[in-house]
């Protein structure tokens, strides 16, 4: 077993652990923190089903972003839809036999890679060209885009420029899943691609990628509009009610 394989194998275990535990920690934190008041952005759904649809529209269509800014919306959809298809396409490296729908996705996955990179480059351009967005960008915002562009570009180069032994890559990942390590091919672009993906997984729970759980926990979007019908009380606020209703005023 080469040192390279060992390093990459360990890195991926580490990355999966950080991503999993980190996200679990954040989700738990979001979950247990009470929302003391009813603050849905109105008009808001009157039922739980309505809320599920509202969140669904945000996640699937980026509804509010669409209302807000068509340019960002188009680029965001290019990137995210591209990313989603690319991730689906990559499932073939982790499944044997490859699931039926993953096979179906394969041809789209290739175009999706270009869409994803194009979307990212567009979003990145806005960070330079639009004065408002330039103002709010930190170095980490640029680096995050750089990281994703590099992942996308190195991935595309693996397909179009420096092809690698895909069968062996798959063997490596199945080996990781079954704790039966197999050697990893050593093309630089593959190593770059995989290394950056591991890095992305590691920084995920510590970065603005927390928008992924965040979108589901945002009280302004996930609350039902029923404040008059149902009393909403945070555990920490309950004690304030003690001792009232005793004496008349004045």
């Amino acid at each position: 077993m080469s040192l390279l394989t060992i390093v990459y194998a360990l890195s991926f275990y580490f990355a999966v652990a950080v991503l999993g535990l980190g996200l679990a920690f954040k989700i738990r934190q979001f979950w247990v923190t009470p929302a003391p008041l009813k603050i849905p952005i109105m008009p808001a759904p009157l039922t739980g089903t309505g809320v599920a649809f509202r969140l669904g529209r945000e996640v699937v269509f980026f509804e509010s972003l669409f209302k807000s800014n068509k340019w960002i919306w188009v680029l965001a959809v290019l990137f995210h839809a591209g990313l989603l298809l690319v991730v689906m396409r990559h499932l073939r490296y982790f499944t044997e036999p490859v699931w039926f729908w993953v096979v179906l996705v394969q041809p789209f996955g290739v175009y999706a890679g270009f869409a994803m990179v194009a979307g990212l480059l567009g979003l990145w351009a806005r960070r330079f060209l639009v004065d408002r967005i330039r103002y709010i960008s930190s170095p980490s915002d640029h680096l995050m885009l750089a990281l994703l562009v590099l992942i996308g570009a190195s991935g595309l180069s693996l397909r179009y420029l420096a092809r690698t032994d895909i069968i062996q890559v798959k063997a490596f990942f199945l080996g990781l899943l079954h704790f039966d390590w197999q050697p990893l091919p050593s093309e630089p672009s593959l190593l770059l691609h995989l290394g950056l993906v591991a890095l992305l997984m590691i920084i995920f729970p510590f970065s603005k990628l927390l928008h992924v759980p965040g979108v589901f926990f945002s009280p302004s979007r996930n609350q039902i509009d029923n404040a008059r019908e149902k009393r909403h009380l945070a555990p920490w606020a309950a004690h304030l009610d003690s001792g009232r209703d005793n004496a008349p005023a004045e």
């Binding site: 954040k26 934190q29 979001f30 923190t33 009470p34 929302a35 003391p36 603050i39 509010s64 972003l65 807000s68 800014n69 960002i72 965001a76 979003l123 806005r126 639009v130 408002r132 967005i133 709010i136 960008s137 930190s138 915002d141 603005k208 927390l210 928008h211 965040g214 979108v215 926990f217 945002s218 009280p219 302004s220 945070a234 920490w236």
Partner: peptide, 24 residues
Amino acid sequence: LLEKNRALRVYLDSCVKCGACTDK
């Protein structure tokens, strides 16, 4: 406040600096 108010925690963590709100 971070312990007492989910909104604050989620909002501080989730912004991606997309800029959609900047001119609103």
